[in-house]
């Protein structure tokens, strides 16, 4: 049974902070940071935004394109490392906000930055087995970086939602393949405010090992080569890793550039690969093939081979990723600190 994307929706908050604005606080060289991470600025959620508001906005945008009856949605899974509640689901809020309740199943996922693609695989399986007609998979985050840490330059906010079904698809998901191991490269313990990471350890044994293995695995399984694809999207914790991964696999910068958003908006964590894929779908035409590979610390990668249909051009998404990226307002570090609740002694939630 052919399974694919019936509609997708993206969202990136309006506010941004430049690398220079962060670097000056910590006495670091902004140019060095910008060239090292390939990140110029990052998105910042407004004071009244969180993963739930982003997930709802993405889901509503996806429904606008899919034009399906929300009552036909049988499952909603939201992947994030910043769910607003430790106990109580973001997915049930999304379900209520898109009027998909009450006859559906829903749950929240966490797998660092790949929770959104894990959600996509779940609903793909449910649609393929005819358990449900449509399923919604969302990757959304308002990620946290410890003040002064390298992550502060990249940890940002955004997300994308995918409505998966079997009819009227604008892109067919030809195959998916995952590679998972127990790798302690990045973590956050229950109750801890900020995540910790293994610095350089996050590169070779973590990001590259999993991304490359998942990409090679799916290519071999499907007897395909990098030249068979018009676009490729790799998880983008910074602007450099995805370009290096692409090079190692034999993809060109041209294949990767459309879906590489980190230099402009930072790392949207669970939103990163889904948002990169959305940016590609905004431009892709019938017959174009896309390789998408996520990465989540802990660690694992999910790879997808996607083929765009004529339907994508017929029902072009009006709320493009580019429109969200271009609409921006810069914040100072002090206002950013307030928005993110980083000011000591001040609780934004009374």
């Amino acid at each position: 049974m052919q399974v694919g994307i019936v509609g997708y929706g993206a969202y990136v908050p309006k506010y941004r902070i430049k690398a220079e604005e962060i670097a000056v606080v910590w006495g670091e060289d902004a140019e060095k940071i910008k060239s090292g991470l390939c990140v110029r600025e990052k998105s910042v959620p407004s004071i009244d935004e969180d993963t739930a508001t982003i997930a709802v906005t993405c889901a509503r945008n996806a429904l606008e394109q899919a034009k399906i009856d929300p009552a036909d949605i049988g499952a909603i899974y939201v992947g994030s490392e910043s769910h607003p509640y430790a106990v109580k689901t973001t997915s049930s809020m999304v379900a209520e906000a898109i009027e998909a309740t009450p006859v559906l199943t829903a749950a929240d996922y966490q797998f660092a930055c790949k929770a959104g693609t894990a959600a996509m695989q779940t609903v793909m399986g449910m649609v393929a087995s005819k358990m449900i007609k449509y399923g919604v998979a969302i990757g959304a985050d308002t990620s946290q970086g410890k003040p002064g840490d390298a992550l502060e330059y990249t940890a940002s906010a955004g997300g994308a939602a995918y409505i998966i079904g079997a009819e009227n698809v604008l892109a067919i998901i030809r195959d998916t393949y995952s590679y998972t191991t127990d790798t302690p490269d990045f973590w956050r313990r229950e109750g801890a405010e900020f995540p910790s990471h293994g610095s350089r350890f996050t590169a070779e044994p973590a990001y590259f090992r999993h991304v490359l293995a998942a990409a090679k695995g799916i290519l071999e399984k499907n007897k395909m080569q990098p030249k068979d694809f018009k676009y490729a999207v790799f998880h983008q914790p910074n602007g450099k890793f995805p370009l290096n991964a692409a090079k190692k696999l034999g993809f060109t910068n041209e294949q990767v550039s459309t879906g590489l958003l980190t230099p402009m908006i930072g790392n949207t964590y669970s939103g990163a690969t889904p948002l990169g894929l959305a940016a590609v779908l905004d431009e892709a035409c019938a017959g174009d093939k896309i390789l998408a590979v996520s990465y989540g610390s802990g660690a694992g990668s999910d790879a997808f081979i996607i083929e765009v249909t004529k339907e994508n051009e017929k029902r072009r998404n009006k709320k493009t990723v580019k429109s969200y990226i271009n609409k921006k307002e810069y914040l100072t570090y002090s206002i950013y600190s307030k928005f993110k609740g980083k000011i000591k002694g001040v609780s934004l939630e009374k």
Partner: peptide
């Protein structure tokens, strides 16, 4: 209309969401 956080009942309470509005571009 946009979907936003309205207020939260402290760090341990529920978060209340609802409608706000934003200017159309």
């Amino acid at each position: 209309m946009v979907f936003r956080k309205i207020f939260a009942g402290g760090k341990e309470g529920t978060i209340r969401y609802g409608y706000k509005f934003k200017l159309v571009d």
